[in-house]
Design a binder for these strands. Structure first.
Lengths: 190, 190
DNA sequence: AAAGTTGTGGAACACTTGTTCAGGTAGTTG
DNA sequence: CAACTACCTGAACAAGTGTTCCACAACTTT
């Protein structure tokens, strides 16, 4: 077995640090605030490091979306896939538009970016596909409506003058998953 | 009555032309593509005209959102407030993510911009408030779920690799407005 | 230990950006 | 028709951008 090159290991770590810094910049200033220099400053690396690791600024954004999409995926699946109660779901949503407001904002900016970059689409909607796969809804229509409403509630929560809290969201979620048996009682293929 | 100053009239017209050009630029290249120069080129006015009419680039974006919000408002109300059938609603949604895809994309970018500019929030969510006011839902919970789902369906339609058509959306809409009597049979206050 | 390879970063370049400003032009008024 | 005013714009500037390039450092291999 060949020894791993210490340089490459360090490189990979720095590479990831740059992506994480990019996400922080987006959280703070939006996609518009992402420049090689601002990312480098945030990551504490030389100005040219982002250019070195990512051929173009676009590549950096793409890498950041891909990475953030994975986290989004986990979060969303935790919300929709757990079979949690309406209150638990409402709590997660409330958290997303309050404590994690900036993060959620960033994720939707990247999300929307996928609307203009076809190559990003699969990553952006991965959580949707995964949700369907995990839950195996018997009533796909009701489930799709549920998933759409989650996106809508989050987006609308971001532009409310005061973000909704758990108690306000709970009845809406409750309404959406009424008759959830319809889609959670997944049929197993034989 | 004093005569209107022809100069001011012309100015107002040009001012609006600049806002319209800005929206076209956003449709084509996104908010990121908006610069004084790109807008000026699109509007066919001198480079400094946008600066002259709008103190800062931000002001221009804000003016554009305010203006586009009015149109969004009309469109959305046509969808949710008309009491149209599920098919009619589905048709409107399908149109938004197909023929009018770029326009819808632009509107959501501006929408999200409101997430970072508190002063834009009222304009961005105006259609939501208006919808509630017009429909006077007896079941506000069901109605909010419906409104959220519309946003979600549009956003998810924008990142689908092939945008959904009328026939795919119809059952989902149908599901969402089942028991619509609950929220359309508005109680009149005496 | 020397040679070779890969990663790294500061200086610099060409370019675009937002914004300023003084001069010019069109419209109104006396 | 002259004086005035308000609107408009082209040239110019400072600041910041993405990206390139080459010297050099870190590491591996011989």
């Amino acid at each position: 077995m060949q020894k791993v090159d210490g340089r490459k290991a360090r490189g990979e770590k720095k590479r990831r640090a740059i992506v994480e810094a990019t996400l922080r910049v987006i959280e703070r200033d939006g996609v518009a605030g992402v420049t090689h220099r601002s990312v480098a400053r945030e990551a504490g690396v030389p100005t040219t490091a982002p250019t070195y690791y990512f051929a173009t600024l676009d590549d950096l954004l793409i890498a950041t979306l891909l990475w953030s999409a994975e986290e989004l995926c986990d979060d969303m699946l935790k919300i929709v896939g757990s079979g949690g109660s309406a209150r638990e779901i409402a709590r997660s949503l409330a958290k997303a538009v309050n404590e994690n407001r900036c993060r959620t904002l960033a994720e939707y900016e990247l999300y929307l970016l996928a609307g203009r970059r076809p190559e990003l689409k699969p990553a952006a909607r991965r959580w949707l596909d995964l949700a369907v796969e995990v839950v195996r809804p018997a009533d796909p229509v009701a489930f799709r409506a549920f998933l759409a409403a989650i996106d809508g509630l989050l987006m609308q929560g971001l532009i409310a003058d005061v973000a909704p809290n758990e108690d306000e969201l709970e009845p809406i979620v409750s309404f959406l998953i009424r008759g959830r048996d319809d889609f959670t009682a997944a049929p197993r293929e034989e």
